Amino acid sequence: MTKVTAAQLATARGCVLGLMLGDAIGATGGNVPASGTLRATSAGQLACFTIEGIIRADVRGSHKGICYPPSVVWRSYHRWATIQGISGLEAMPDKNWPTGWLSTVPALAERRGSAPAAVAALQRKTMGTIAKPGGTSTGAHALTRTLPVGLYPSCNPVEVAALTHSGEALGAAWLGATVVRLLAAGDRLHDALESARLHAANWREVAERSLAPAVAAARSRPGTLPELTRLAPDARAVSALAGGVYTATSFPGRETVREALLFAASAGDGGHTATVAGALLGTAHGADALPVDWLSRLELAWPTDTLARDLVTQMADSPSGGEYVEATDPHWWSRYPGG
C-alpha cells in the first residue's frame, strides 16, 4: 500500500504539468493554435531531466546510504545532451548509456531551441558548484529547469542551478524553488511569496528586485501588459521570476489559469514567464485546475505526469527497496538506475 497522499500527488502533478503547459503555451507567444500538438521547448526538456535526476538520486541514496543529488542531475543533463546528438561530451564508460526510460522518449531527442549555458557546461566536462559555478549565464533556464527541485526538499536548488549558471540566476532559482516547496506544503501563494522573500538570506537583493516589485505591481496594477513587460523585459532568470510571480498574483484563482497563461505568454521573453506562472499556479491548485483541452494536446503530458507521480512515489515508498529493504517493484531500478 502506498504512503503517497492525495495532496502530495495533486501538487506534484500540478507543478510539473503546469510548468510544461506554461512552457508550451509560452512558445506560442499567446497565439495558441486551435488544434494540433502543443510542443515543449528545451526549457521543458531540461525540467524533465531534472526530475529524473532527483528520482535517481533518491534511489541511489536508498541503496548506497549517501548521495549528492546535483551530481546525479548533472548526469541526467548529460543524457539529454546525448540523445540530442550534441557533440563534445564526456565519454561514459557504461556501454548501455544512456540508461533509464526517459531517454527513450522521442520528443526529448528533438532540438527545440537552444540551451547554450547547459550545452557549454556539458562540453567543458566540468560540473559547476556554488563556489565555482558552471558558467557565467544568468539566463532563465537556471530557474525553469530548477523549479521542480522545490518538490524534493532534500536537494538544494542553488546547487542544481549552479551546475550551468551563476550570479543572480542562482538566487532566482532558490526563490522560485522555495515558493514551490512552500506551496506544496500547503501555503497560500501570498504567504509562500512573503516567506520566501523574508528568508532569502544571501539572495535578499534578488528577492527585492523580483518578488517584491512583482507582488506590489499585482496589488496596484494587476494583469496589465505594460507592467508585465516592465517586470519581465528579457530572458534572464530574474525577469522570468518577476513576470511569473506578477502573473500568478494577478490571476490567482483556479478559474483563471487559462487567462493567466495566455497573459504570461504575451510577455515576449521567449516563454519563460509562462513557464514559471504555470509551475506556480499548478502547484497552488493541482493538476485538475489546468485546462483539459490544452493538456490533452500537450506533447509530453504522459511522460511528465509519469515523472511527477514517480517522484512522489519514490519519496514516499522507495519501490526499488534499499540496502536492507526488499523492492516492492522489481522494475523500478531499471527505470531509474541509481546513478
Results as ranks from 00 to 15, higher is better:
residue 114 S to R: 14
residue 85 G to L: 05
residue 120 A to T: 03
residue 88 G to C: 08
residue 82 T to M: 07
residue 173 A to K: 12
residue 80 W to M: 03
residue 139 G to V: 07
residue 172 A to N: 05
residue 176 G to R: 07
residue 181 R to P: 06
residue 168 E to P: 00
residue 93 P to I: 04
residue 137 S to M: 02
residue 152 Y to F: 15
residue 146 T to C: 12
residue 81 A to M: 03
residue 113 G to S: 02
residue 100 G to Y: 11
residue 177 A to P: 10
residue 122 L to D: 00
residue 136 T to W: 09
residue 174 W to T: 03
residue 136 T to G: 12
residue 156 N to Y: 06
residue 84 Q to C: 13
residue 104 T to I: 06
residue 121 A to V: 02
residue 179 V to M: 09
residue 122 L to W: 01
residue 111 R to I: 15
residue 162 A to N: 03
residue 122 L to T: 01
residue 157 P to C: 11
residue 165 H to K: 04
residue 157 P to T: 12
residue 135 G to E: 00
residue 173 A to V: 12
residue 181 R to Y: 04
residue 167 G to F: 09
residue 77 Y to E: 01
residue 89 L to S: 07
residue 135 G to D: 00
residue 162 A to P: 04
residue 179 V to F: 08
residue 112 R to F: 08
residue 169 A to N: 10
residue 145 R to P: 07
residue 155 C to G: 04
residue 86 I to M: 10
residue 178 T to V: 03
residue 131 A to M: 04
residue 170 L to F: 07
residue 164 T to I: 04
residue 97 W to G: 14
residue 93 P to W: 05
residue 183 L to E: 14
residue 101 W to T: 12
residue 99 T to S: 12
residue 146 T to Q: 10
residue 98 P to N: 13
residue 102 L to T: 02
residue 155 C to F: 08
residue 142 A to R: 08
residue 171 G to W: 10
residue 107 A to D: 12
residue 115 A to K: 04
residue 183 L to K: 13
residue 121 A to F: 01
residue 100 G to H: 13
residue 109 A to K: 07
residue 112 R to I: 09
residue 86 I to Y: 13
residue 157 P to M: 10
residue 174 W to Y: 15
residue 140 A to E: 14
residue 124 R to A: 09
residue 126 T to H: 14
residue 119 V to N: 06
residue 174 W to I: 02
residue 106 P to I: 08
residue 121 A to L: 01
residue 158 V to H: 03
residue 165 H to V: 05
residue 166 S to W: 04
residue 180 V to P: 10
residue 166 S to C: 05
residue 110 E to A: 14
residue 132 K to T: 15
residue 157 P to A: 11
residue 174 W to V: 03
residue 107 A to E: 15
residue 146 T to A: 14
residue 142 A to C: 08
residue 122 L to C: 01
residue 90 E to H: 07
residue 96 N to M: 11
residue 105 V to A: 08
residue 148 P to V: 12
residue 168 E to K: 11
residue 160 V to D: 03
residue 162 A to G: 03
residue 161 A to I: 04
residue 126 T to V: 15
residue 120 A to Y: 02
residue 136 T to P: 00
residue 131 A to W: 03
residue 160 V to G: 06
residue 79 R to T: 08
residue 77 Y to G: 02
residue 182 L to G: 09
residue 127 M to Y: 05
residue 119 V to W: 05
residue 156 N to G: 07
residue 157 P to N: 11
residue 124 R to Q: 10
residue 167 G to S: 15
